[in-house]
Write a protein that binds this DNA or RNA. Structure first.
Lengths: 186, 186
DNA sequence: AGAGTGGCTTAGCGGCCGCTAAGGTTTCTC
DNA sequence: GAGAAACCTTAGCGGCCGCTAAGCCACTCT
C-alpha cells in the first residue's frame, strides 16, 4: 500500500470520526490533505471504497492481533486480549467511532466482509472465555463478549484521562465483568 | 404530542436504526407509515427536526428515569440505575442505535441539547457511584460510568437471547465492573 | 531530448432528495 | 348543509455532491 494512500486514510478517518461519513465531502478530504477534491480518485475508486478499505483494515487489524495473542496461549490469554483491545480503543478513538457509526454507509459487500471478520474476532474471544469458564453456555458468552467490547469501546465518549490511567480503568472494569460468575449456570 | 407524531417517530426510529439517518429518505418514512413522503411536513418541520425530537426525547427519558430512581434513595440506587438503563437498552435497541450513530446528523442546536441532557445523566450516575465509593476521584468515576453505558448499550450488537436472560447478564456484568476496586486510589 | 508515468488541476454533468406549492378529501362543529 | 380544520395528495424546483473528462506539470529513465 502506497504511503499516500495510508496518509489519506488517516486524514479521512479523522474527518469521518468528527463529522460522520455522510457529512464529509470528497472536497473536504482533499482540502485536509492539501490537494483538491477529485485528486482522491487517483488513489481510491471512490468515497465508499475508501470507507470500505478503512473498515476492513480495522477489522483485520483486530482479528490478526487477537489471533497472535491467542496463539501464544498460556493462562492469561483473556488478560492479554483485554489489554490488546484496550490499547487499540485508547490509541485509535477515531477508528472506533467510524467503525461503529459509519459501517452502514459502506457497500453491502464491504459490510459483509467486515461483519464476517468481526464475527471471527468475537468467536476468538468467546472460545477463550469458555476455556476459562466451561460452564458458560455459548450464547451467554457471546453476549458477554459483546458487552465487554461495548465497555472498552467507550473511549470516544470518555474525557481524556492520562493514557495509562485510562488503560488501567478499562482493563480493570473489563476483567471484573468477565470474571463475574453467573447466578445460575444457564 | 399527537398520536400520529409519536407513531411517525417510532416508524422513523426503526428505519434510522436499520439503515442510518442519511440512508433513509422522507419518502421511505412516508411509505412505511402508509402515507406519502411530504405528508411528514404536516407533523414535523423537516427530517432533521424529526431526528432532533427523537434524540432529545431519548435523553429526556433517561434523565427523568434516572432522577426518579435517585430521588427515592436507599442503599441500592446503583442497582436500580443499572436495572433501569438495562431495561431501556434491551427494550429499545433501535433508539440506542440511533442515539449513538445519528446524533451527528442533528442540528448543532439539537446536538447541544442532547449532550447537555446526557451530561446531566452521567453526573447523576457519577454522584451515586462516588457516594458508594468515596475514594474514587471524579474523572475516574466519569470514565467508569461511560464504560458502563457502553457495556449496557451493547444490546444492538448482541444476538437475541430471551429478554430476562439478557437483563440478567447485563446487570451482573455492569455491577461487577462498577464494584471492582481500583488498585491504587488515584 | 523525448517518452512514459504518477499525481495533480479545473470545469462541469447528472442524479438524488429535501422541501415547497397548490390543491383535493374527509371529519368535525354549529 | 356550510365552513373550518386536519390531513393528505402529486408535481416539480433547487441545491448539493460524487464522480468524470480533459488536460497540465514534474520527475525518471533511456
Amino acid at each position: 500500500m502506497s504511503k499516500r494512500r495510508t496518509e489519506l486514510l488517516t486524514i479521512a478517518a479523522n474527518l469521518f470520526a468528527e463529522r460522520g461519513f455522510a457529512n464529509v465531502t470528497v472536497n473536504d478530504i482533499g482540502d485536509a490533505a492539501g490537494v483538491s477534491g477529485p485528486a482522491l480518485y487517483h488513489h481510491f475508486e471512490g468515497k465508499e471504497a475508501l470507507l470500505g478499505e478503512m473498515l476492513i483494515g480495522i477489522s483485520e487489524y483486530l482479528l490478526d492481533g487477537g489471533r497472535k495473542v491467542a496463539v501464544i496461549g498460556g493462562d492469561e490469554v483473556l488478560e492479554r486480549l483485554v489489554d490488546f483491545h484496550a490499547r487499540f480503543a485508547v490509541d485509535d478513538r477515531a477508528l472506533i467511532t467510524v467503525q461503529f457509526r459509519d459501517l452502514v454507509h459502506a457497500t453491502e459487500r464491504d459490510q459483509h466482509t467486515v461483519r464476517t471478520l468481526q464475527a471471527r474476532y468475537v468467536t476468538l474471544w468467546v472460545d477463550e472465555l469458555i476455556g476459562e469458564q466451561p460452564d458458560l453456555d455459548r450464547r451467554t458468552a457471546r453476549a458477554t463478549v459483546q458487552a465487554i467490547f461495548g465497555l472498552i469501546n467507550s473511549t470516544p465518549y470518555s474525557g481524556s484521562l492520562p493514557r495509562q490511567q485510562m488503560l488501567d480503568i478499562l482493563t480493570r472494569l473489563a476483567l471484573a465483568a468477565l470474571r463475574s460468575v453467573p447466578d445460575s449456570p444457564a
